[in-house]
């Protein structure tokens, strides 16, 4: 099992100018790790739509890599998005799923089928170009350099341990959107 915070730090170290779409538990920890907050598109889940939101950004900015930091329970709510993404086949799409087998935000109830199915196989079968699974930090760290460079859509399942969550913040997420839009507009016009 990988520690969620360590996994996020490792992703953060490899990230350069990618847009990041974090969701659910990850959403609570990413701001303290991210070095490019102007490119972090926060949202509050909306029944597992991080992958779909990230797809939209990826289609709009084909020269910029987009990273979805998704969660297992969230992706199960929007599993069809794997096929939608594979059908669009954006080469700049990198999809991480943090799999801890529980709905962390609601107190740790198990997700349906926890431990009985394989996310990376689902992604591969849906048509993702690449699909990986990691359960130790060292292997993840060694592989991420290559994964960040290869054409996607790429799916990376991270087997992570459960983690104590901080209080859900009172602040909304809408303020991130104009900031990211402006940053991406500068990139396009520049």
């Amino acid at each position: 099992m990988i520690d969620t915070i360590e996994a996020l730090k490792t992703i953060g170290e490899h990230r350069t100018n990618e847009v990041v779409v974090p969701t659910m538990s990850v959403f609570l920890f990413w701001p303290a790790i991210s070095k490019r907050p102007e490119l972090d598109l926060h949202h509050t889940g909306c029944m597992g739509k991080a992958s779909s939101l990230a797809l939209g950004v990826a289609l709009s900015q084909p020269r910029r890599r987009v990273i979805a930091l998704d969660a297992d329970g969230s992706l199960l709510m929007n599993l069809g998005s794997l096929v939608t993404i594979a059908n669009q086949a954006p080469a700049n799409f990198l999809h991480f799923v943090f799999e801890n087998g529980v709905y962390q935000n609601t107190g740790g109830q198990p997700i349906p089928g926890a431990g009985k199915f394989d996310f990376s196989r689902l992604a591969r079968a849906a048509g993702y170009r690449n699909a990986y699974e990691f359960d130790d930090l060292e292997s993840l760290n060694i592989s991420l350099g290559r994964i960040f460079k290869e054409d996607g859509p790429t799916f990376v399942c991270l087997k992570v341990s459960r983690i104590e969550l901080p209080e859900w913040p009172e602040w909304g997420t809408s303020e991130a959107w104009p900031r990211v839009k402006e940053a991406l507009a500068k990139y396009v016009s520049g």
């Binding site: 739509k49 950004v57 289609l59 709009s60 900015q61 929007n78 396009v188």
Partner: peptide, 26 residues
């Protein structure tokens, strides 16, 4: 105009939101 087909309608608004942030008009 590009068509982006989805598997379930809830995906549409999220994809459109991402396209909009990236400078498109979905």
């Amino acid at each position: 105009i590009k068509l982006v087909q989805v598997c379930r309608e809830g995906e549409t608004v999220a994809i459109a939101a991402g396209l909009y942030v990236g400078g498109k008009e979905p």
